[in-house]
């Protein structure tokens, strides 16, 4: 659990310094607007929920997949992969924490679209 929290914490620290990961969050309302206008133009009110949910899920998904795929590569690049492997904590809990931190942030788009709706 401590490893998991360490992962969550460092991910928040990192995101605060390089918020480019959060760029997707900014695009979500706009995607939602596009989707909505399509749905409204087609006069399909039954699809409004989908139009709102889809951008949020895309954001959430893209965001977490991106980080999950990147974390090992970036650790290697930064040179922290070797020392992490020599540390007495199983790194998957730490990385899981980092990914969950991002997932947690990914819930924001859900809120965003909900506000829009």
């Amino acid at each position: 659990m401590r490893a998991f929290l360490a992962g969550v914490r460092i991910q928040f620290w990192l995101i605060r310094r390089q918020p480019d990961d959060l760029l997707t969050l900014c695009t979500i309302p706009f995607t939602a607007v596009i989707m909505l206008s399509v749905v409204i133009h087609a006069i399909r009110p039954d699809l409004v929920t989908n139009a709102l949910l889809a951008p949020a899920l895309i954001g959430l998904w893209g965001f977490s997949i991106g980080l999950a795929g990147e974390v090992i590569e970036s650790e290697r690049w930064v040179g922290t992969l070797n020392p992490s492997l020599a540390a007495p904590t199983e790194m998957h809990s730490v990385y899981f924490g980092r990914i969950m931190a991002v997932m947690g942030l990914g819930v924001i788009p859900l809120g965003e679209t909900w506000l829009l709706g």
Partner: peptide
């Protein structure tokens, strides 16, 4: 301690 400047988070 493996030498060089690598192995630290520069943004922290």
């Amino acid at each position: 301690v493996f030498g060089g400047e690598h192995g630290l988070y520069w943004k922290l």
